[in-house]
Design a protein around this nucleic acid. Structure first.
Length: 275
DNA sequence: AGGTCGGCCTGGCAGC
DNA sequence: TGCTGCCAGGCCGACC
């Protein structure tokens, strides 16, 4: 479940491994991984390509290549990028990147939801519709207010819309709303004033501290060296149905909102008062 | 157009 | 033990 902090962790770990290095070739091992692309284009774009810099946009990883289109990867649910000198024996290796005079980079993904494509005009349109980066200076309370205004959808669902704010997923949406004491079912447009300032603050706070802890590992997520992230034991509500709320002690509740598990404290997290 | 829902996938686990 | 069925969830396409 790589969300922004997990993808940021992967990008930071891969920079020293990949930046300035040259790919000799890529092996594409499962058709679902390149479903959005022409595999021949991918192979030829990556053959002997020099990697200049690595970046992140929302939950996407970007490899900027010298004189080639940018390579974009998305890990979706279960994808991992693992660095190893020796070839991994896993059944779920979907692509292998060969570096000149360097280790192998494995794209491992049991569920094959992950994907990779080139920014050469054939990319999925959704990539260009991504919303504001929540850890950028552009993400201000005022900017969030403009996005929320008039929306009737539950704020939890709103936070998952990548075309509004890019990078928040199911875990950090629940965590930020708990910290802000906002009920996940609150209509997004009803959040104003101090509550909105609070939500802006907790979103930035939760995402930044998860980046500091190398992300959350519930089951699949691994850093490129195979280590899990450390934020999992800092979660206040996610995955803690029935456990006491760290603030008030009342049991955490789980509900389904738009088909997604949503965790919250029914005592501390209120919808806004009617006026 | 905004809001909602189901499908894509497979591993892991609960329940029988 | 071995089977069934459900759950995980990011994103997209279909629908109202």
């Amino acid at each position: 479940m790589p969300e922004l902090p997990e993808v940021e962790t992967v990008v930071r770990a891969l920079r020293p491994v990949l930046e300035g290095k040259t790919l000799s070739r890529v092996e594409l091992l499962h058709p679902r991984i390149w479903r959005e692309s022409d595999p021949d284009r991918l192979r030829s774009a990556l053959r002997n390509a020099r990697i200049s810099t690595l970046d992140r946009r929302g939950k996407y990883l970007l490899w900027n290549l010298v004189n080639r289109p940018t390579l974009v990867l998305h890990l979706r649910m279960s994808g991992q990028l693992l660095v190893s000198d020796k070839r991994l024996s896993s059944d779920h290796v979907r692509a292998v990147f060969h570096l000149k005079n360097g280790p192998l980079l494995h794209f491992v993904d049991p569920r094959t939801f992950g994907t990779l494509f080139l920014l050469d005009g054939t990319e999925p349109a959704g990539f260009h519709a991504l919303g504001v980066e929540p850890l950028s200076p552009e993400f201000t309370p005022r900017a969030l207010a403009a996005l929320l205004r008039g929306r009737t959808t539950p704020v939890k669902s709103f936070l998952l819309m990548q075309n509004r704010v890019a990078g928040i997923g199911n875990i950090y949406a629940s965590e930020a709303l708990w910290r802000a004491r906002i009920h996940p079912g609150t209509p997004a447009g009803k959040i104003r004033g101090q509550r909105l300032e609070g939500l802006h603050h907790t979103l930035v706070e939760v995402l930044s501290s998860a980046v500091d802890e190398m992300g959350t590992t519930l089951s699949d997520f691994r850093q490129p060296d195979g280590e899990p992230g450390r934020y999992g034991n800092k979660l206040d509500v996610y995955g803690r149905e029935g456990e006491p709320c760290p603030r008030c002690g009342r049991p955490i509740t789980r509900t389904m909102l738009h088909g997604r598990s949503t965790f919250f404290c029914p005592r501390c997290q209120h919808p806004p008062r009617r006026r």
